[in-house]
Every structure is written in C-alpha cells, then in structure tokens.
Amino acid sequence: MTASSTLQTTPLNAAHRALGAKMVDFGGWDMPVNYGSQIAEHDAVRTDAGMFDVSHMCVVDLKGDQVRNFLRGLLANDVNKLQVPGKALYSCMLNPDGFVIDDLIVYYFTETWFRLVVNAGTAVKDVAWIEAQNAATNSGVTITARRDGNDPIALIAVQGPNARAKVWEVLPTAKAASEPMKPFNVVIVPGTAFGEAMIARTGYTGEDGFEIGVPAGQAEALWNALIGAGVKPAGLGARDTLRLEAGMNLYGQDMDETVNPLDAGLAWTIVIDGERDFIGKAALQRMGQNANFVGLILREKGGILRAHQSVVAASGALGEITSGTFSPSMQQAIALARVPLDVAIGDTVHVAIRDKKLAATVVKLPFVRNGKVLAV
C-alpha cells in the first residue's frame, strides 16, 4: 500500500509503512497516527525513549549581514536573547493585528546565519510572509526553505528519559561535539555516519531529548539505527497526548490567526517592553490580555474533554476548551482552556458535555513534566 498521490510524504514514509503504521491525512501529509498501541508509544516516551517523524515541519535558513535585525522586527520574542552561538529561542510570528501566524523555534549559529523550524501546515504561508517582510524592509536576507528542495533536511525527534543515551549509541562521534548541552541549545556536527547533523536539545513532549536534522537521504538509515538502539517509533496520537500533558500549544487548535497570543498563555514568549518594535506589537498593546489560559482536570465521570466545549465559570461567564484528551499518565480527562480573567487556579468550573455540565478543577500548567505528574 502506498500513500495517496494527493498527499505529501516525508522521507520516512516507506519506513512507517514497513512497520505497519496506521497512516492518516494530517494537514495534507501522509503521517503515522500510531504503530499499534498509542498508549504504549506514549508510555515509552514518558519512561524510556520514543521517536517521531517530524520531517513534515520545515527548516528555514536565514543568512545575511542584517539577519539579526530582521528577526528582531519579525518575531515577538527578542533574538537579542541569543548572544552565544548554539542557543535556541521559542517565539511567535505575528501579523499586524497581533494574531499568530505561527509559533516556531529560532536557532542562532553565527551573526550571519539563523535557522527557523516552522510548522508543517503553515510552512508555505510562513516562508511567503518572511520573504515579503524581507523585501519590505530591504534587509537583503537570503531565505532558504530546506524541506521540499534546496538540499532538504529531515527531522526526527527522540524524546524520553533515556533518549540522549540512546542517541549517543547511534551518533557516538556527535557526543563529544555536543555534550555538555543544556536545554534549548543546538550544535551542527559534520561528518557523522548520517552526514551533517543538527542536534537540538528541544522537543514537544515535556521530556528530555533531541530534535535531530539530517540530510533527507539519510533519514531512513538514522531511523532504523535508532530502532536498533531500542527507541520506539511513536505517531501523531502519542505526540498529541504528550504535548497536551506538557501544556504545550498546538497551532491551529490552541492559537491561530484569530487568537491573541496573550490569551493563549504565550505572554512569556513576547518581549513587549522597551523600544524594539516588531510586527503586531502595537496591536497587542491595544488589545491587552482578555483571558487566562489554564489546565482543566475533569472531576466527574461521564465524558472526555474536547476542543470547543464551553467552560462555565462560577460567575456564569463562558470560556472554551482549546484542546482536550484522556491523559494516559494521569488516567484522567484533561484539557487546555481559555477562561475569563477572574477564573483562578484551584477554582471549580463546569464543562458542557452533551446535555450535562460536569465539574472540573482549574490547574496550573503543565500537567506532567519529566515523567512526573504535577497537576492534581
């Protein structure tokens, strides 16, 4: 069985199918949702090591003498926080109305070379937007998307408490170049067994690990070598429950071009004070914050928390669930929600599920981090 001709595929598509993965249409990409047991894949990441094909996301290289100044105006977070080569930063990219075009990670290599990793479904839009801003500001930055052409880079995320040890089994020559590496750091290692490798200590699960970029033609060999080291392949299903337990936003669900990032728990990614201007700053200052972004734990039986369910505060004011699931780590229904500003941690709210209003507790995010349940 092969992927539909209407869907895009990553360099690992054949490897997924050889493992018997259940494949689904994920935003126009043919991607594995699981390889048999989503729960087993989730638990592997929390207790050992699992890996995800994230090659549908897009590496974008930005080079030029003015690249730092360009990014200071393009992104809501301030890349001047990146002063040591090999540092990484999470940020939103906003439109002039202050809403979220995309969330991304920016990596700093040299004063003339920064790298972005942007979301799959927004990549074409993102690159067009970046190119338009480059032209409008006459910044002279060279912008190269490294996914579909232009020497493509495949991405594999290896996550879990044993992820780093197992990666070093497969990439022993990279260990000396990479360690000690703190979270949100990155290194480029030439000449590995899988070609030049980008090794970033970042992830989307709430666990330790790496996101590894290699030439697309080497991706399947790296994937199979990691399986040989005991890393369990995991699909989109486990990726979603893991990121939700970790309190991490999903673009298109928890925020998008209709959402004020201050209402999506993303104020920590925005440097709004000071003289630096960036696209969307004035709009954010006008809007301010109008909702709290919190976690919910369902306290009554009778349903699962899902996106778009209404949340009723004690005052009668309404909020909305943005993402919800049944947590494998907690064995409880949990959700991310935007709620009125007067709703506080510890409050009881009610969620409309079919014809019932079920009680839920407002908790501080994350629910789970580094294998430990934090929200009770």
Rank of each mutant, 00 (worst) to 15 (best):
N119F: 00
T144S: 09
V141Q: 08
G371I: 10
N77L: 04
V349G: 00
D273K: 05
M248P: 02
S55F: 09
Q285S: 13
T47M: 11
N185C: 15
I101M: 04
G195W: 07
K356F: 10
L298Q: 06
A15C: 11
T2M: 15
A128F: 05
Q332A: 14
R146G: 09
F109Q: 06
E300Q: 15
V118Y: 07
V363K: 05
D263M: 01
L71R: 06
D240M: 14
L336A: 06
A307L: 09
A193T: 14
N260A: 12
K81W: 11
L242A: 10
K125S: 06
S323M: 09
F184Q: 12
S91E: 06
G36H: 00
T2N: 15
E275G: 01
V33M: 12
N224T: 09
K232A: 14
D355S: 14
T202L: 15
L341D: 02
G121A: 13
T325A: 11
D151C: 02
V60M: 08
R147C: 12
Q289H: 08
D103F: 03
E211A: 07
T6R: 14
G98N: 07
K81Y: 10
V45Q: 07
A307N: 11
A44S: 13
L374K: 02
S37H: 11
K357G: 10
A163G: 03
P11L: 05
G235P: 01
R146Q: 13
R369E: 10
G280P: 10
R299A: 15
G288T: 10
V170M: 07
L74R: 01
P172K: 07
A177V: 14
T192C: 10
R306M: 15
D97E: 13
D277H: 09
T258F: 08
A360T: 05
M51P: 05
V362Y: 01
D342G: 13
D25A: 04
V312C: 08
D78Q: 01
V339K: 03
Q253Y: 13
V343H: 10
E41W: 04
Q38M: 12
A314Y: 12
A200D: 04
V84L: 10
R299P: 09
G20L: 06
A344I: 10
G50W: 01
